[in-house]
Design a binder for these strands. Structure first.
Lengths: 342, 342
DNA sequence: GTGAAAGCGCTAACAT
DNA sequence: ATGTTAGCGCTTTCAC
């Protein structure tokens, strides 16, 4: 930081008190038109920029909120971020974007920094249930926060998320409608409520249609973006390999697709895939994946609205808002080749 | 912001002065072990979190830097962001990520906010040459900044960017090697130095191989992500339509591809495409585009290093570092069907 | 209409 | 090893 001009410098140059400068700055209180002009001129001359740090210190509010997401490279979260941002700007808040990398410790560091710089509120897509500990840091200090996309077990707060149970169920029923019976699931870390919901929907659909739930069909993927594993290999070498896969998110859908390709298996020829959200932000490929799409932008605007209300002091009991997903049927699914009973 | 405990509260509870608490906090100066423990206990009891705002105010530095990018949804910039972030964290700086949306006015707003909250420095991929005005706000206040990916005409500063001239030339020569002679170019806004460099490389290659530069083959695209236009249409209905296209960035490569598809034209069967950077971060499609890839992560780490040096007071003359791009040949290019003279 | 004084939470410099 | 004083840049309150 540098020796920038401060309010006193401006005051001196304009031959007024700091108070008058402050009044000009904030447009409140009476200032004679001529004085105001003198002050404005002095500001310009000195390249004066008000020090928001000092202002926040006395006002006890920073007009900043933080958005913490688990993966900044996932288009779902960048879309959420845009929603948050637009709504925040409309209300004169600045957004600080933080990337926890699905890592609870990194997440904690960011939350601690948020406390230190006294953000007015936090919107967070939590890394997992273990985030509870991090969020508890906020409670005694009374910093408002909203959960996005994922509930956190044992944490009371406003939540904005999608109806993953229902969406997963619909996706599976779509597969069943195409006569699939051997349907596997790629779930994300079961630390995340969203993953669990999607598994629940998967099971619900199977049950409803009298299809046996098979342990060995469900693969929990905790690995990160670039790591390798053999889930598909394992799946496809079972005595009764699946004919379709429900992937619990966009990343996993791609993973499944790529692994199948390596085994020379066709999608949807040999195996159908269904998933969540858009996979290919730029639509490089023809939109290909049959998918349940979440209204990500709305996740953002809505959760920001909630957060603003909390910051303004709304003290009602926590709300959960569950948004519908839109299932779009594309080319990653087709009728099963060799119908199976089961 | 809320009535959180402050340093005096802790001091009182621990029966010491604020100074002692401060010393415990910052681990400098001598504090008796027993006193230290008492202080620590008091902190915990009060859920004390140091107020970084106040600290920054007296220390005259915020330990925050800002990264301003023109498009947060472009994987190139998110990769840069990761590089910046990692390097910043290593050096105890927090990063504030801002999205200017290729909009000079929004960019100015963010820069003004950065000044108000007294960030220690700014890394910026400028919206265009018009960003000069915005950057000039920083000069008189002596806030260090680094330019990433794009020079800004008339602005002196450290710059980290790719060798776009050479890369564009190589891409075009690759096409020429495949016997293309009618090569069109999709450029981004010529407000951006990077676009201009790529056009320069394009012309250089043509010239070198005695191919006529044709005005009507160069299309400047200033439209945004979702807008429509007829560039490809115009191009392909020329008396001598191009057999290949150089796209000036990842977004434009996709645009070209999609528009060709609409006209029932095949890539690379009817038209070859070359571009820059990765197009498909998740590799949904087989990596498909022949492309010159920039070391985006390194852009980030390097520019952060420069910025840190400037913050620390390094006052040498501005440096420009130009990184090589890596050309990867993939499936969006092939030998021209009907060789043309020209 | 304008100003003076006090204080937001912290630390540097100087006591003791 | 610990405390006191002053001040970072601003706004609130009250006075004129």
């Amino acid at each position: 930081m540098t020796e920038m001009a401060n309010i006193t410098d401006v005051a001196k140059l304009a031959n007024v008190s700091a108070m008058t400068v402050s009044r000009v700055l904030n447009g409140k209180g009476y200032v004679k038109e001529e004085t105001r002009r003198r002050v404005l001129k002095a500001m310009e001359k000195l390249h004066y920029v008000p020090n928001e740090l000092a202002r926040s210190l006395v006002l006890q509010q920073s007009q900043m909120i933080a958005l913490i997401v688990p993966d900044i490279t996932n288009p779902f979260y960048t879309t959420v971020a845009r929603g948050i941002e637009d709504m925040a700007r409309k209300n004169n808040y600045q957004v600080i974007l933080c990337n926890s990398d699905e890592n609870v410790d990194k997440e904690r560091e960011y939350i601690e920094m948020c406390l230190r710089i006294r953000v007015d509120g936090i919107a967070i897509a939590a890394a997992g249930d273990a985030s509870k500990k991090n969020l508890q840091l906020l409670k005694p200090l009374d910093i408002p926060f909203v959960l996005i996309d994922r509930r956190v077990e044992g944490t009371q707060a406003d939540v904005v998320l999608g109806d993953s149970v229902e969406a997963a169920q619909s996706l599976v029923e779509h597969l069943i409608g195409l006569r699939h019976r051997r349907i596997a699931m790629f779930t994300g870390s079961l630390q995340s409520s969203t993953s669990r919901d999607r598994v629940a929907g998967y099971r619900k659909a199977l049950e409803k249609h009298g299809i046996l739930y098979r342990e060995e069909y469900v693969k929990e993927n905790t690995y990160t973006r670039n790591s390798e594993n053999s889930d598909i290999q394992d799946l496809m070498t079972l005595p009764e390999p699946p004919t379709a896969i429900l992937a619990a998110n966009n990343i996993l859908a791609v993973k499944a697709f790529q692994q199948l390709k390596k085994l020379q298996l066709q999608v949807p020829g040999d195996v159908s895939i269904v998933g969540f959200d858009e996979v290919d932000p730029m639509n490089v490929a023809e939109p290909f994946f049959t998918s349940a799409i979440q209204p990500a932008y709305t996740f953002g605007t809505l959760s920001m609205q909630f957060l603003l209300e909390r910051i303004e002091g709304n003290d009602s009991s926590p709300r959960t808002i569950v948004l519908k997903l839109e299932m779009v049927i594309r080319n990653s699914t087709q009728t099963v080749k060799v119908p199976q009973d089961n």
